[in-house]
Computed example of a mutant assay.
Amino acid sequence: MRFVIRRFLLFVAALLAISVVIFAALRILPGDVASVMAGLNAPPERVAQLRSQMGLDRPLVVQYLSWMGGLLHGNFGTSLLTGRSISSTVAMRASVTFPLIVLGLVVALAIGLTLGVVATLATRPMVRSAFHFLAIVGGAIPALWGGLLLILLFGRGTGLLGVLPSQGFPEAGWGSFSSALASLVLPALTVGIIDGASLMRYTRSALGDVMQSGYIDQAMACGYTRRQAALKVGLRLATPQLVSVVGLMFAGMITGVMVIENLFALPGIGTGLVTDLGNRDLIAVQSELFMLAAFFLFVGFLVDLLHRFLDPRLKHAVQGGAQ
């Protein structure tokens, strides 16, 4: 319980620090936020109106506390360009981005864990070298190029096979479940293949280290074959290390899918953030950046807890050190 409380306090402290950085960044940059949003040739009356509307004429401490108070109540503010609630806009975009990340992670796990185990268990040097080469090539593929290649192969209307949609998201959203899911298949494959190649290298390395330890010899002495010992003992011992890798990969996908969303014309958080930056809707950008940072920190918090739960040796080490 003390460990959980300590990690939670660190999470809250990091979140507050990030909020201060994001808030200050939009006010330390050269120029006035209202002037930037109003445009270069905006009359002074328009700039003054924006400053009053955005609350920029109030002290900075008051502005920050007002913004944080709104965030705590789930109120991200109102877009000055569209007049819509930023919370509803972000929620709509998140309904595209987060399913895409989850599907991409599923693909990455299926590829990375499976091929990583197969590569570790391979005994022929040529086969091991082939898997090593595959992991390097797959991880080196740029996301943009990989996505274009999948569009040319499977994109409906332009691809060689033409079986999957390659642009857009249904207007009905997840109300049209089959169409929504089909529109995310190619983007998820693009993300999953690249991250799966990286996960394959980590799996091969972590499981390879365990295979050279005495745990596998003990399991084989109890009657397990090498394959059974790797699957039932090796993977379990390598799981804490892989959980950390998968957690960071999952959090990193939130920024990695920005390119993919723009390529496949998906109305997700990445596309929306680029659009808001181009439209100078800095109030929306401020809240969206905070949400992304909070998500990244929260995933790290969960990974710490899960790593502690899966590896009892950490608990015993801390208790031994305390004694």
Rank of each mutant, 00 (worst) to 15 (best):
M1L: 15
V12R: 14
L15M: 12
L16S: 04
L26C: 06
G31F: 06
M37D: 13
M37L: 14
A42G: 11
A48L: 10
R51L: 08
Q63A: 01
Y64Q: 03
L72R: 05
T82I: 03
G83I: 01
S85F: 13
A91W: 08
M92H: 00
M92A: 02
M92L: 00
T97A: 01
L100M: 07
G104Y: 08
A110G: 15
L113K: 04
G116K: 10
R124E: 03
S129R: 15
F133Y: 05
A143D: 12
G159M: 10
G173Y: 04
L181S: 11
L184G: 09
T190R: 11
V191G: 07
M200R: 02
Y202W: 15
T203I: 04
L207P: 08
Y215E: 03
M220N: 10
Q228I: 02
R236D: 02
S244E: 02
L248R: 09
G252I: 06
T255Q: 12
E261T: 08
P267N: 13
G268K: 05
T271S: 13
R280Q: 02
L282M: 05
I283A: 14
I283V: 14
S287P: 06
M291D: 00
G300E: 08
D304K: 00
L306G: 01
H307A: 10
L310G: 04
